[in-house]
Simulated assay, not measured.
Amino acid sequence: MPRRYLEPLPGGRLRLIERAGPAILRDHVVVEAPADWAELAARAAARPAPILPGLPVDRPLVMGVINVTPDSFSDGGDHLRPEDAIAAGEAMLAAGADILDIGGESTRPGAERIPPAEEIRRIVPVIAALAPHAPVSVDTRNAATMQAALAAGARIVNDVSGLAHDPEAAAVVAAAGCPVVLMHMRGTPATMTALATYDDVVLDVHDELADRVAAAEQAGIARSRIVLDPGIGFAKTAEQNLELLRRLGLFRSFGLHLLVGVSRKRFIGQYGEAPEPKARGPGSLAAALWAAINGASILRVHDVADTVQALKVWRAIAGA
């Protein structure tokens, strides 16, 4: 059975694609979707319900990143002490963050695993302190860590493996009934760099995410609870990251919230000529605004205040 893809284009046009395996059977642009493509078109045009009560859907949400790790690529060691991580979270909330994403294990290219017990030790005090003040997401691949974080007050699970790493993870999320971010990644942080080979990176990532959505639903997770992340920088080359951003609109046909994390990533440094991750703020803002314009409803960022300001100016110009 051929797979179908619908990609919104500027001017209200739609690109319709069909393929079987790597072979493209149909690829053309129309002004109006044919009747047998109506469901995909409706999904692409729909605005999903809030992922949590009280969170707005009329603008992109800003998710502030707090890595309670010694070795994350951009801010490793900055927030390793609980008191530093808590202070960083409070500052992000004051700057306008809608969600805080707290992780205790680095997933940078080449990173090695740590035991879930250590991950839990790092993040639970931080989650417990910040969860009363804002929605907290736990960035983890491990079911035990998910359980501990949810018990401490986290309300969202953000799994870079798309619930594929730990066989118990999907059951934990299903039982909790919480929103879950399914990110696209191949392999592990230690092996993913060697796995960036695709027939068409956008269509292949779409298909692999569709498989993760199906697996999540099979495990009892409501589709309305699922958020998708194309995994910029995970098992992708710099050019593949650009292509995913160029054609981000194609992922809107899932009819789900789309999270995009480009903040300070290596391709920003490559194209922006900024080797130091903390000097990649302007490039990160450019990519984040592009993602917002093309359908991202959640932006995962390190520089909350700058992103909030940029979104406000963009929305004012757009008349939002």
Rank of each mutant, 00 (worst) to 15 (best):
A286K: 03
N241K: 10
K278R: 15
R252T: 09
A292D: 05
Y271N: 06
N294V: 10
P277Y: 02
S253E: 01
L256I: 08
Y271A: 00
G283M: 12
H257P: 07
N241E: 13
L248Q: 00
E276Y: 12
L258Y: 06
R247F: 08
L245Y: 13
G249D: 04
P282C: 08
A288K: 07
I293K: 15
R252H: 06
L244E: 10
E273Y: 04
A286L: 14
P282N: 09
V262F: 08
N241D: 15
A287Q: 06
V262G: 03
R247E: 11
L258S: 02
F254W: 06
R266F: 07
F254K: 00
K278Q: 13
R280V: 11
A291K: 02
A292W: 02
L244N: 10
L245W: 12
R247A: 07
P275E: 14
Q270T: 13
P275W: 09
A274H: 06
F251I: 08
H257D: 07
G249I: 01
G255T: 03
L258H: 04
L244C: 10
I293C: 14
R246H: 15
L244P: 07
G281T: 15
L245Q: 12
L259D: 02
L285S: 07
R247P: 03
S263V: 14
R264M: 14
L250C: 00
R264K: 15
S253A: 11
E273Q: 06
A274K: 09
E273S: 08
L289V: 11
N294K: 14
A279L: 05
G272V: 08
A286C: 09
G281I: 12
I293W: 10
G281C: 14
A288H: 09
F251P: 00
A291R: 01
S253D: 02
G255K: 02
L245E: 13
R280M: 14
L259K: 00
V262A: 14
E276F: 13
P275G: 14
N241I: 09
I268T: 13
L248K: 00
I268A: 05
L289I: 12
G283I: 09
Q270M: 13
P282T: 07
N241F: 10
A287L: 11
